[in-house]
Structure formats: C-alpha cells, structure tokens
C-alpha cells in the first residue's frame, strides 16, 4: 500500500499533469484555455506571422534599406515625438479627469463618464475630419489660435492633438478603478500624522496610482504610434515634416510594395511589443512588492 503510494507520488512528481486536474475545483479549464489559445492564434498570432513571413522574404540589406529611408526615418521621429507628447498630455489630463470622476459628485457626472469612451466608439476618420475642421485656420478653434500665432492643423501639433484625442480613454480607464479602490483610511492616516495635502498626494496616493498611470500612458503611447485615421486628416502629410509612420506604410501599399510596407510595419510592431513587455515586467515586480506575493 505505502509503496504503491510512494510510487504514485514519484510518478506524479516526475510527470506533473498540466492544469493539475485533481486539485481544480472550477470545471472547464481545458476547454476555455483551448478556445482562448485558438482565438489568440487566429486573430493575433496568424496575421503577425504573415507579417514576419512577408518581411523574411527580403534580404537584410533590402530590409535595412527600406526601414532607413530618410523620409521613413523622419516619420519615425515625428510619430514617436508626437505620440510621446500626446501620451504625456493624456497622462496629466487623464489623471485629472479620472480624479474628478472618482472623487467628486456633481450633476452630469455620469454623462461625462460616458463621453470619455467616445474616442473609442467614434470612427477615427470622423474624429480626424472633425478635428481638422475645428483647427483649420477658419475653424472654431483655429481662428482664435491663428490670432495668437499658433497653427495646429496641418502641422505636427495637429498630429499630437489627434493622437491625444483618440487615446485619452486608455489613461482614464486604467487609473479610474485604482483610484476607486484607494482606501480613504490611508489618506486619513497620513493627514492625522500631520501630512499636508501635497504630501499626501505625493507620498500616499501617487505611489498607489502610478503603476496604473504608467500602464495607461504606455497604452496611450503605443496606440498613438499606430494611429492613422484621425491623424492623416489633420496632419497635412508633408514629407519630412508631418508624415506619420502609418502613413508611410499606406504609401508603400499604394505602390503595391507589400514587402516594404511589412518591413516598416514590423518596426512599429517591435517597438510596441518591447514597450508593452517592459511595462508588464516592471509592473509585476512593483506589485509583487506591495502585494507581498
């Protein structure tokens, strides 16, 4: 009896079963994981593989030549800087918006809460056209801004505006639940220990908030890197000045140069992936510390 048990234990130790069936209480682990993996493969991995296949048909020299084309390199700079500016703006404004939505009660709060998601629901092209009309020199905003000597439409500033518009919900929606879960006692404890409001925010609220804020900003940034619809209408698309990378991909596609389009796309993809992984890893380490896992 005991030897049989020991043998069994030894076997199960040597061959750990995937999912450890004997201990699982919730049914359907195998099925749900299988379906999830299938869909991830079909919807995410397969198209990405196609992209890589397309690129791998090129030689490295060809690839390098395409992705280091001066006009394309200029577009990287414009895109990255505009995305950075837009995501930083969203980091500040999105935090403020989330703060207001969580901390205060005011009439119309639910309406504003709903409106925050509008950039997700609105077709980006519509957003682009609306922004372009508003910020054009004779538009509602544009006519006032041009008096101040600020041009938005058809300049890189316009790109920032379009990117910020389409990616704002990322910040608000990642920060909001964390703010809601903050225990009021933490702030009360800090205040009872004599901390000023600024200090409470800096040393108690912000440390709890910033993993989420950083995630939101990173999501906003990566989304902005690939923004196309909203940007092209307002950007003016002048070579070397206000062309974004996704437009370069589009241009290559129109020239039926699929390989070049894929090569440029793969650069955007790599940057996005590296950013997301880096954030996830860093965040896991930070959260491990405060959650004690």
């Amino acid at each position: 009896m005991s030897t049989a048990n020991q043998a069994g234990a030894a076997v199960s130790q040597r061959w750990p079963r995937i999912g450890n069936r004997s201990k699982r209480v919730l049914p359907g682990f195998g099925l749900s994981l299988g379906i999830s993996l299938l869909f991830i493969s079909l919807i995410l991995m397969l198209p990405l593989t196609g992209l890589v296949m397309e690129v791998s048909a090129m030689s490295f020299d060809q690839f390098w030549f395409v992705i280091t084309d001066p006009r394309v390199v200029a577009s990287y700079k414009v895109t990255a800087l505009a995305a950075l500016a837009a995501s930083l703006f969203n980091g500040i404004f999105g935090l403020l918006l989330a703060w207001v939505l969580v901390r205060y009660e005011f009439p119309g709060k639910r309406l504003i809460d709903a409106v925050v998601d509008l950039p997700f629901a609105l077709p980006t092209a519509v957003a682009g056209i609306v922004l372009a009309t508003l910020f054009a020199e004779n538009g509602w905003y544009g006519q006032w801004l041009s008096k101040l000597g600020i041009e938005v439409a058809f300049t890189p500033v316009g790109i920032v505006v379009a990117m910020a518009f389409t990616s704002l919900p990322f910040v608000v929606r990642t920060v909001q639940p964390v703010l809601e879960e903050l225990a009021p006692e933490d702030e009360e404890a800090a205040v009872s220990l004599g901390a000023s409001d600024g200090l409470v925010f800096r040393r108690v609220i912000f440390p709890a908030l910033w993993p989420a804020l950083l995630t939101g900003v990173a999501l906003s940034f990566t989304r902005s890197l690939g923004e196309f619809g909203a940007v092209i209408f307002i950007a003016g698309n002048m070579p070397y000045v206000s062309e974004v990378t996704s437009l370069m991909i589009f241009v290559r596609l129109q020239e039926y140069d699929y390989a070049a389009a894929s090569a440029i796309a793969s650069v955007v993809l790599m940057v996005s992936l590296v950013m997301l992984f880096a954030i996830t890893l860093w965040q896991a380490r930070y959260l491990k510390r405060i959650e004690g896992r």
Binding site: A183, E185, A189, G194, P207, A208, R289, I290
Partner: peptide
C-alpha cells in the same frame, strides 16, 4: 496632534 489607529491598520503598502 493626535495619534489615530484604524481597525484595518491603514499602513502604506508601498
């Protein structure tokens, strides 16, 4: 200038 102790400790997690 009071000391206040909460039921659920309210320690700063980070």
């Amino acid at each position: 200038n009071i000391g206040f102790v909460f039921q659920h400790y309210a320690l700063f997690r980070h």
